[in-house]
Design a protein around this nucleic acid. Structure first.
Length: 507
RNA sequence: GGCCCGUUCGUCUAGGGGUGAGGACGUUAGAUUUUCAUUCUAGAAACAGGGGUUCGAUUCCCCUACGGGCUACCA
């Protein structure tokens, strides 16, 4: 790569379903790298497989990127100088390059049907379409020119395959892995252009990376084995000097056991794998996403960035700007990382704790509305949120932590009260009600002072009164400081709850 | 099976020829919170194995083991 070239990177997902953690991380690394080097971040939709195309997946991908703050500079939604950005709309481009390769002797027509090839695979243990057997199969290397022309003339279904050279060692530099080598004898003659005229990934990625002037090609490690095909293509098409730097990212693995993290693991282990909720348009199945689970996008992005990358210090919480400033490919690790949901939760908790109310409110109100709970967006709501903010791991936890601020407890943890409940305590609370009723100002400090004075007068241990009081107001053994709760609840409501609970406790 | 990539606490990782192998999550214990969470303190916890190279290897090299990926007219 020449140093003067403007950095251009692309995120190139297939619109086949929900956007996976690993996909978002690939997009993130692309984005960070582009921003750091003042380059362009391109979204390209790789929809060359018509069988796997899923309606709505493209828009979903764009929505996910937007939620994460990874907005592409160019793409099907935004346009750009290299439009179109959907490979299906670039179909006409690819055939000419495939034909060029055939003319130059780097590729050939193959007329074998999928059934024939399947039969070959059954017969031959390690069947590989390549230099060892391409001379015995139905293709333009083997067949005479007139035969080929006649087959082509009759529009016989065919593909175009790359002709892998024999006995060569192909080496290339990967920015994460260093030098990687392959024996060309062991790589098959991959299909470049399918019978339907669509390119395979192999052709499309090379052609489009070239046409779109991509300088750094980030992708998952699962692509490493097909890299030799792509490198050869860059050379065969005469574009070698424009070939991007390769960056094969480590995979994100299952937390338990082995293998790549998949949607199923999330269902099985109870955590999201997709960035946002994804509803399969065919089956109607809904797969949970991080957003709907109550993740803050900043936390999600930070967590993803640290999965396979660090800045070499002990810092773990980064703003997007810091990530952009500090990101470097050299510090991406080589090995795959098992996804740890506990750590992912920790990131979110940290972000919620340090978030401003205004950042939290809209998302929480949306969640509450979604559950059919109407909570007014007012000063009272702000105060409740401020009181419970530190206790939320997910935005979703808000209602569990604060419902008692909005409605009376439906149930009381009587087991925590009854064993130690006595006549004098009923009396204590009756007196407390009258004293609280006479208070002119209603603050946590005054409430507490009065509460303790009375306890002393009645010679009851304060500890034996605090818990029942809490349960009167909250229903259970949890929540913020009890006098803060009472203060916020207000005079009338607090007294009402004591009265109501007293009935329950004594029944 | 073949090929490629990888391997530091349970997990994410730092480090790097001579270190008490550091941090974070989780976990354990304690303090605070007269609840719970937060917070604080302390603890347990790792260089896959074997050969080299070297005065000295967790660090460099080789082998083995293990893990992962790929092996489609899917990406």
């Amino acid at each position: 790569m020449s140093d003067t070239k403007k950095v251009r990177v692309r995120f190139a997902p297939s619109p086949t379903g929900g956007l996976h953690l690993g996909g978002v991380r690939t997009a993130l690394f692309n984005y960070l790298f582009a921003r750091k080097h003042k380059g362009d971040f391109v979204l390209r939709i790789e929809d060359t497989d018509q069988n796997r195309y899923v309606e709505g997946a493209e828009q979903y991908i764009i929505d996910c990127l937007t939620w994460c703050g990874l907005t592409p500079d160019e793409g099907p939604h935004a346009g750009g100088p290299f439009a179109p950005y959907r490979q299906s709309e670039r179909k006409e481009n690819y055939r000419q390059y495939a034909e060029q390769l055939v003319r130059d002797g780097y590729a050939y027509y193959a007329f074998d049907t999928p059934e024939e090839l399947e039969a070959q695979r059954q017969q031959t243990p390690n069947f590989r379409y390549g230099h060892g057997n391409r001379n015995f199969l139905r293709n333009s290397i083997n067949l005479s020119e007139t035969e080929v022309n006649s087959l082509l003339g009759q529009k016989t279904p065919h593909v175009i395959r790359i002709k892998m050279p024999a006995d060569e060692t192909l080496s290339f530099q990967d920015l994460i892995r260093g030098s990687v080598s392959f024996d060309t004898n062991l790589v098959d003659d991959k299909v470049l252009l399918k019978a339907d005229g669509m390119p395979t990934y192999h052709l499309a990625v090379v052609v489009d990376d070239y046409l779109m002037k991509i300088t750094h090609a980030f992708r998952g490690e699962e692509w490493l084995p097909s890299a030799p095909v792509h490198i050869l293509l860059w050379a065969y098409l005469g574009w070698k000097k424009d070939m991007p730097e390769w960056v094969h990212l480590p995979l994100i693995l299952k937390p338990d056991g082995n293998g790549k993290l998949s949607k199923r693991d999330g269902d099985r282990l109870g955590f999201p794998v997709y960035a946002m909720n994804w509803k399969d348009p065919k089956t109607g199945d809904l797969t949970k996403g991080f957003r709907e689970m109550g993740y803050l996008p900043e936390a999600f992005v930070n967590m993803l960035a640290l999965l396979g990358w660090n800045d070499g210090t002990e810092q773990e919480i980064f703003t997007m700007d810091e990530l952009i400033e500090k990101f470097s490919i050299e510090r991406v690790s080589k090995a795959g990382a098992k996804f740890d949901f506990e750590k992912a939760k920790w990131f979110n908790h940290e972000y919620i704790k340090k978030s401003s109310l205004s950042n939290l409110k809209p998302a929480i109100l949306t969640i509450l509305n979604g559950r059919g709970l109407s909570v007014p967006d007012d000063d009272y709501f702000d105060k409740v949120l401020a009181l419970v903010q530190d206790r939320l791991t997910f935005l979703q936890d808000f209602w569990d932590q604060s419902s008692f601020f909005f409605e009376q407890p439906k149930e009381y943890d009587l087991n925590a009260v009854k064993p130690k409940w006595t006549e004098d305590k009923t009396e204590y609370f009756n007196v407390l009600i009258s004293q609280y009723a006479n208070m002119k100002t209603w603050t946590a400090i005054e409430l507490e002072t009065l509460f303790k004075q009375l306890a002393e007068e009645k010679s009851i241990k304060i500890g034996e009164l605090m818990l029942p009081f809490r349960i009167m107001l909250v229903g259970g053994k949890f929540g913020p400081a009890v006098f803060d709760i009472a203060a916020l609840l207000g005079q009338g409501e607090t007294i009402k709850r004591i009265e109501k609970a007293l009935v329950e406790f004594n029944s």
